Simulated assay, not measured.
Amino acid sequence: MDVAHAADDAAAFAGGAGERRSGNERCGRTAASGDREVTDMPTRNAKAQWSGSLKNGKGTVATQSGVLDAAYSFPTRFEDASGTNPEELIAAAHAGCYAMAFSAVLGEEGYDPSQLDARADVTLAEVDGKPTITRVALKVSGKVEGLDAGEFKRIAEDAKNFCPVSRALTGVEITLDVDAA
Score class of each variant (00 low, 15 high):
residue 128 D to Q: 13
residue 106 L to W: 04
residue 33 S to R: 10
residue 121 D to V: 05
residue 74 F to T: 14
residue 119 R to Q: 12
residue 126 E to A: 04
residue 10 A to C: 02
residue 136 V to L: 12
residue 107 G to T: 10
residue 144 V to A: 08
residue 28 G to K: 08
residue 124 L to P: 12
residue 164 P to N: 01
residue 5 H to L: 02
residue 124 L to I: 07
residue 127 V to P: 14
residue 9 D to K: 01
residue 25 E to I: 05
residue 52 G to F: 13
residue 64 Q to A: 10
residue 130 K to C: 14
residue 2 D to T: 01
residue 14 A to M: 04
residue 128 D to K: 04
residue 9 D to H: 02
residue 11 A to I: 04
residue 130 K to M: 12
residue 134 T to F: 02
residue 27 C to F: 11
residue 21 R to Q: 14
residue 56 N to S: 15
residue 114 S to D: 14
residue 113 P to S: 03
residue 100 M to K: 08
residue 99 A to N: 14
residue 172 V to P: 06
residue 71 A to R: 15
residue 5 H to F: 02
residue 170 T to H: 01
residue 71 A to P: 10
residue 60 T to H: 11
residue 55 K to F: 06
residue 71 A to M: 09
residue 17 A to R: 11
residue 136 V to G: 15
residue 9 D to R: 01
residue 163 C to M: 03
residue 141 S to C: 01
residue 132 T to N: 13
residue 168 A to G: 05
residue 135 R to C: 07
residue 166 S to F: 05
residue 51 S to T: 04
residue 62 A to T: 15
residue 129 G to H: 02
residue 88 E to K: 09
residue 158 D to F: 02
residue 138 L to Q: 09
residue 53 S to R: 08
residue 81 A to R: 11
residue 131 P to Y: 05
residue 109 E to C: 02
residue 18 G to P: 00
residue 18 G to I: 01
residue 109 E to R: 10
residue 150 G to C: 02
residue 9 D to E: 00
residue 124 L to E: 08
residue 113 P to M: 06
residue 14 A to K: 03
residue 134 T to H: 13
residue 60 T to A: 15
residue 15 G to Q: 03
residue 144 V to S: 07
residue 51 S to R: 15
residue 180 A to Q: 10
residue 170 T to A: 07
residue 154 R to Q: 03
residue 70 A to Y: 02
residue 61 V to F: 14
residue 63 T to Q: 13
residue 52 G to N: 07
residue 41 M to L: 10
residue 159 A to T: 09
residue 9 D to P: 00
residue 64 Q to G: 10
residue 29 R to I: 14
residue 150 G to K: 09
residue 101 A to S: 08
residue 49 Q to M: 05
residue 71 A to C: 12
residue 164 P to E: 07
residue 123 T to G: 09
residue 148 D to E: 03
residue 106 L to P: 04
residue 134 T to M: 14
residue 145 E to R: 08
residue 45 N to A: 06
residue 36 R to K: 14
residue 69 D to V: 07
residue 27 C to L: 11
residue 27 C to W: 04
residue 141 S to Q: 07
residue 175 T to R: 01
residue 80 D to R: 08
residue 10 A to Y: 04
residue 168 A to P: 05
residue 107 G to N: 13
residue 133 I to C: 02
residue 74 F to K: 13
